[in-house]
Design a protein around this nucleic acid. Sequence first.
DNA 1: ATGAAAGCGCTAACAG
DNA 2: CTGTTAGCGCTTTCAT
Lengths: 347, 347
Amino acid sequence: MVTMKEIAQQTGVSVSTVSLVMNGRDGGRVKPDIAAKVRKVAQILGYQVNPMARSLRTNHTRMLGFISEEVATTPYAGGIIKGAQDAASRLGYMMISVSTDGDADEDEEIAALKRYGVDGFYYAKMSNRVTRVPRSLMDMPLVLVDATDPEGRFPSIEPDEFRIAYDATTRLIEAGCERIAYVGCSENMIAQDGRLAGYHAALEESGAGYSERLVANVLNNGPALNAVSELFDREQPDGFFCFNDARAWYVYECAARRGLTIGKDISVVGVDNHRVFAETLEPQLTTVELPHYEMGFWATCKLVSIIENRSLDDLELPHTTAPLPPLDAPIPAKIHCALIEKHSVRS
Amino acid sequence: MVTMKEIAQQTGVSVSTVSLVMNGRDGGRVKPDIAAKVRKVAQILGYQVNPMARSLRTNHTRMLGFISEEVATTPYAGGIIKGAQDAASRLGYMMISVSTDGDADEDEEIAALKRYGVDGFYYAKMSNRVTRVPRSLMDMPLVLVDATDPEGRFPSIEPDEFRIAYDATTRLIEAGCERIAYVGCSENMIAQDGRLAGYHAALEESGAGYSERLVANVLNNGPALNAVSELFDREQPDGFFCFNDARAWYVYECAARRGLTIGKDISVVGVDNHRVFAETLEPQLTTVELPHYEMGFWATCKLVSIIENRSLDDLELPHTTAPLPPLDAPIPAKIHCALIEKHSVRS
DNA sequence: ATGAAAGCGCTAACAG
DNA sequence: CTGTTAGCGCTTTCAT
């Protein structure tokens, strides 16, 4: 490991000077030619800062702590974490992610991360829920991910559920469907409200109109299948927007039993949580992919902007809001969704 | 942040003494009563070591670097990472996991982790493959996870594919199946060889005998479905062992089309990769869950044992090899599998 | 414009 | 047994 001392010796200057140069703090303080020489020697020797030594003085480590639960059991997590990590890496940060089982070890893990000197925290839930933020996090730079603080004190990154549903439903409308059903979730989830509203809005706006009779909010297993089955027979829908791919599966099953082919006799758009169908059958239903990666990515940007007290735009990372794919394609396609960025109260 | 200095002042001793006590290196070196006093003051003040400051002297950080690819896209990763992290946390280590896209950023991420001073690395692939270990990892304590080094130079933790298949097939035999098919994977994967062998062995041992005609190695989508369909009609199997749940899905689909009920007319055991079925339908097929968590857990233990140059048994962690569930249960049940621990060549 | 010196929190060699 | 001293690699006054 090359140290500043070595560079100093090689160049014939003091460590202080090297430090100044390596941190870009020369500028009327170090003669340009000597600065250049330092840089060159550093280059040749392959100098890398030692973040630990630096942190001892500066009290910041460029490490970020990612706290989440359930990571082990949900496939969603990967995308968020990957996105967060990518952005961190680009911004010169290191992300340490820790998943907890319950409140018990949560505080322990947070304490451990604090000991290691992380500069800020993500607090993530897998699938948007109203969430109590741990006390121990409140005095730190903090961003919520896929979670909602009841009092709105902390910035959060959440998928735009309304737009997801609005887009998906519009897709069905433009595909020519006239009786569009919604197979939703009967659990109390934030996503459910937004999606139902988006579905509703899209229908109203198109002039097709909304009817409660076309909505089935279900849970799972047999009862869910029966409810969808009943919807099938009662309303004979020609299009379905499904809360997730488990729900899409019920539609798939009902269609199969009635000899109907998805993509031909009926159209289905499902929000993709598990990417099951893509791996098992020829693509027959259109899937809308949740913007997990983007959420993670933006969470990092927001968090770093708080830590460094800079505006988001200063970070110079591409504001990628990918364009929507054409609506007439019967094949699966990703829809990237806008992110809602709540106000940040921290000073 | 409480420092040793403060404890020293409060107690009226020197920092050295405090350091000795806090590291348990008193023992004939510090008078018991003064050691006790130090400990008490530390307790009251809520002292926590500063790992960064410590690492500056000791050159070890108690941080572990977890390198993997594909984490974002596979649900398997979570279990491994959770297991690894749990063990790390119990052993007083912090795990930093980083997932890479390709070789390009892999070396960069490794370099970053080295800068941060990690003590050792995991190198993980999602689903066992023969793997080239990056040069930059070779001079570090290293454990492969779900990956195989062609030259067997590094310790690795892999699922015992043979036993997985052997157990699953035995389960079908004991359930009374007489024509047991294997729906495998036609890609060249290590798991495939082991599973086919385990299936084979279980059949031979039971006296039922093995027939190639009952084996269908498939890829996915339509062709896979057709192949399974053909197997169905040609051999009329009454039991199926499936490489993963995508393959089990083809069997499910074929059964449904023929009016057969799984768990009644035919029996199916599938290796569970996505936990799809549990979320969609009443449990009808038996799933074997891969021991991802355990692999991660043991990987950490192995890695730490290398780093600290201790034997695995010294680590004092429970050697949990959970007992197999009863074989006559028609409901899904986890089968925990033994782990293969390859020899470690590092000195 | 540059360097010397102090110190971040901790460990370890060496005195006493 | 305990304290003094030095130093890990870096940043940051403060002299020069």
